[in-house]
Amino acid sequence: MNSIITYLKELFGGIKTLLKGMMVTGYYFVHPRSIITQQYPENRKTLQMFDRFKGQVSMPHDENNLHKCTACNICEINCPNGSIEVISKQVEKADGKTKKELDTYIYKLSMCTFCGLCIKVCPQDAIVFTPEFEHAVFNQDKLIKTLNKPGSSLKEKVKEPINII
């Protein structure tokens, strides 16, 4: 007799737990408001990325097409996987002195691991992370980006970089 009672207890106890689970899923079935999927390409207009999102490294330019990069190479040295290449040139100034200036700032997005070291170590705050995230391109070459805009030059009156490797 006891075994029959345990048998029935097992049976109904089991059915009860199953129904409990079905209540949970049933609840969500009749509550379509709990849907959390974002409709991505449609909500592109309203999509707000978080301002700190590490989308890609970029170099802000002001309205006169001036950037802050002094081509000090600290970011290149600190980059763990060689995704930054700073090419500098010697420019002769009006007073006859030659000065190192940024020629091209090459940023290889395909190699970047978004560790944020380059931005942390930059003494001039010349580069920042911007929250762009749509990086898909058809050609890998397009992932090698030049961050300084053509014709841009250094914003004057920046203090000399502290020379540390």
Binding site: T25, G26, Y28, F29, S34, I35, I36, T37, Q39
Partner: peptide, 13 residues
Amino acid sequence: KVCAFIQNRVGPN
């Protein structure tokens, strides 16, 4: 569609 609604999704759309 049913499984999508159960799983808080939209399903094929």
